[in-house]
């Protein structure tokens, strides 16, 4: 079974995403800040990372940098608000993220994108 790491400081959103992905049979791991995120990348060894951008301790961009360096083959989906600066979104894509999903979002749509990327 595929493993998905969710790094999101909003517990409600992350729980909802986790609930939806578990329904599709994925193994999920939830962390709420950047520091925990980098640790979990090593310990959980995910097949896909879903990360927010604005988070405590380390931003999503730092997480992407870290993942690209240590797990270059792990795809990443960035889940962030539309109000995010264009520069950040472009930087995320330049770093090679697989997808960018703006908030507000539909969890079912996220599940479809996850399925497409992880297949």
């Amino acid at each position: 079974m595929k493993k998905i790491l969710i790094i999101e400081d909003d517990l409600l959103i992350s729980s909802l995403v986790e609930f939806r992905l578990k329904k599709d049979g994925y193994i999920t791991h939830l962390v709420q800040d950047g520091n925990e995120g980098t640790k979990a990348i090593e310990s959980f060894d995910p097949d896909l990372i879903i990360t927010d951008v604005m988070m405590p301790f380390k931003s999503g961009i730092e997480i992407i940098h870290y993942a690209r360096k240590n797990k270059p083959d792990t795809p990443i989906i960035v889940l962030s608000s539309l109000g995010e600066e264009e520069k950040i979104v472009l930087e995320a894509f330049n770093l090679g993220v697989a997808d960018f999903i703006p908030k507000p979002f539909n969890p079912n749509e996220l599940a479809i994108r996850v399925k497409r990327i992880i297949r």
Partner: peptide, 15 residues
């Protein structure tokens, strides 16, 4: 609080 917070961040039939 939770419902309103979700309402702001969700779209589609979830709203």
């Amino acid at each position: 609080d939770k419902i309103i917070s979700l309402n702001k961040k969700m779209k589609g039939d979830f709203k």
